[in-house]
Amino acid sequence: MLANYGYKDGSGEYFITIDTEKCNGCGACIEPCPEHCFQIGSDENDPLRDEPVAAVVPGQRQKLKYLCMPCKPAGRAVNKLPCEEACTPGAISHSWYHVLQR
C-alpha cells in the first residue's frame, strides 16, 4: 500500500509516502528525523496485516510543510533527506522539495 500522509492546503501539497510493501518495520527512520515524524506499529489502515509498519506520527501529519523545512533549505543543495537516507528498503519518499524560486 502507498500510504500518503500529509495534506494539501492553499499553499501547496505536502505528502510523505510510505510504501508499506517495501517497509520492513525496522524503525531506522525514527532516530534520524529531527522532528520525530515517524512511528512503528500495527498497520492502522490494514487491520488484517500482522507485521509492524512505519507511519507518520498523527500529530505531525498536519504540519509537515513546516516540520520538514530545515531539512529542505532553499539555498543549499541537499542530496537526500535524513529519513529517506535511513530507510534502506527505500520505502519513504516526499512529494515536495523546497526549491529556490524567485
Binding site: L2, A3, N4, Y7, K8, G10, N45, D46, Q62
Partner: peptide, 15 residues
C-alpha cells in the same frame, strides 16, 4: 476492497 493507495487531507477545510 483492500487498500492499495490512499491519501487523506484533514488539515485544510478547502475541498
Amino acid at each position: 476492497g483492500k487498500v492499495e493507495t490512499f491519501l487523506m487531507n484533514d488539515k485544510c477545510a478547502a475541498g
